[in-house]
């Protein structure tokens, strides 16, 4: 498979994503400069974490104007898989490819630590290697991960099983205490209605190798590769 990792000025998890797909999973990876005008030949696209454009103005707010984002939107419209991690998730929100917005963490601090995340929907192209309800240990590292959307959109996403990952206790209980940043409904990751664009705040690329003490995150990437290999169209949700 050929995975494209988009590099915005200020991206800083681009090399980490490249490392996972290339060195750990043996795939070919193309680094896509944000001024790129073609995404031909790519099987999936990753928007990596970091501080695109310094997070100035608002996280992701400037990156959405990057030339490459028009292509990413087209790629997704055509059914291509797009994974946004952390700043990538924030960019997907700003670009309107996923609903909602990010607020500052409730503590107003940057938070970097391992957390438990519950796989609420294991039937997506990004989570099919997980068990339903499985608890993954994945680190977060962000200052703006406090997800918000309006009640109508939230209800629709809930009804549609679009909330894919929720912060939880190690025993898989979704509680306010397990919520690190004040995120609505403990949301850690959501998918679009078409099922081919996933945004998640936790960093699966940081926990996909045993040498780092934890490889839970590998399941996300293995799910993607499996879905791509089967060439299956992204799962259609009940309604959009």
């Amino acid at each position: 498979m050929k995975i494209g990792v988009v590099v915005f000025p200020g991206s800083n998890c681009d090399h980490d994503c490249q490392h996972i797909f290339k060195d750990v999973l043996g795939q070919s990876v193309e680094m896509i400069w944000h001024k790129e005008t073609s995404l031909a030949g790519l099987d999936a696209i990753v928007l990596p974490g970091g501080f695109s454009y310094g997070d100035y103005l608002r996280t992701g707010a400037i990156a959405k104007f990057s030339p490459v984002m028009g292509l990413v939107k087209e790629f997704a419209k055509g059914g291509g898989m797009v994974l946004g991690i952390c700043n990538g998730f924030q960019i997907l929100l700003e670009a309107g490819m996923l609903p909602g917005a990010m607020l500052r963490n409730k503590s107003l601090h940057f938070i970097c630590k391992d957390l438990s995340v519950k796989v609420e929907n294991a039937a997506t192209s990004f989570t099919s290697a997980c068990q339903p309800g499985q608890v993954l240990k994945i680190p977060i590292a962000h200052a703006d991960g406090n997800y918000y959307t309006d009640p109508v959109t939230l209800a629709a996403m809930q009804a549609n099983a679009q909330i894919v990952l929720r912060y939880c206790t190690p025993e898989s209980k979704v509680t306010p205490a397990a919520n690190p940043n004040g995120s609505l409904d403990n949301i850690a990751g959501i998918i679009n209605a078409a099922g081919n664009v996933l945004g998640m705040m936790p960093h699966p690329e940081r926990c996909a190798e045993t040498v780092l003490g934890n490889d839970d995150g590998k399941l996300i990437f293995l799910s993607m590769l499996e879905s791509l290999k089967q060439g299956k169209k992204p799962l259609q949700m009940a309604s959009a």
Binding site: I20, C112, A141, R206, L212
Partner: peptide
């Protein structure tokens, strides 16, 4: 240290 990103670059053992 929880305010510092201590894992980026995925090398921190």
């Amino acid at each position: 240290y929880e305010q510092y990103d201590h894992m980026v670059r995925t090398n921190t053992m």
